[in-house]
């Protein structure tokens, strides 16, 4: 399943948490014109660097599908950054 929600939590030096919820599918739909440009750019890059475009697309799809469950948490003193992909 592709990622549904990315949660970014940041703790400032004053101890306050800031949360950012990014719903992946709506954001991807919103940015679809840019994504289309990125795909075209990617295909051109594939031909330039002698990489199979379909293989690259499949590989990126696999990476995207495998992303849910990923979690990064960094804490340093009073500051912290937590990123979760669900």
């Amino acid at each position: 399943m592709i990622p549904q929600l990315v949660t970014v939590r940041r703790r400032r030096a004053d101890g306050r948490w800031r949360r950012l919820f990014i719903p992946v599918v709506p954001v991807a739909l919103l940015l679809s014109p840019l994504l289309l440009l990125a795909v075209v750019g990617g295909v051109v890059a594939c031909f330039m660097f002698d990489v199979r475009p379909l293989g690259a697309l499949r590989g990126i799809g696999r990476v995207l599908w495998a992303l849910p469950g990923t979690r990064f948490e960094f804490e340093e003193g009073r500051t912290a950054l937590h990123v979760r992909i669900r």
Partner: peptide
């Protein structure tokens, strides 16, 4: 200081 990283093994395979 703390670092906690959780990566799905499926992601490594991909």
């Amino acid at each position: 200081d703390r670092i906690n990283v959780q990566v799905p093994l499926q992601l490594l395979r991909a």
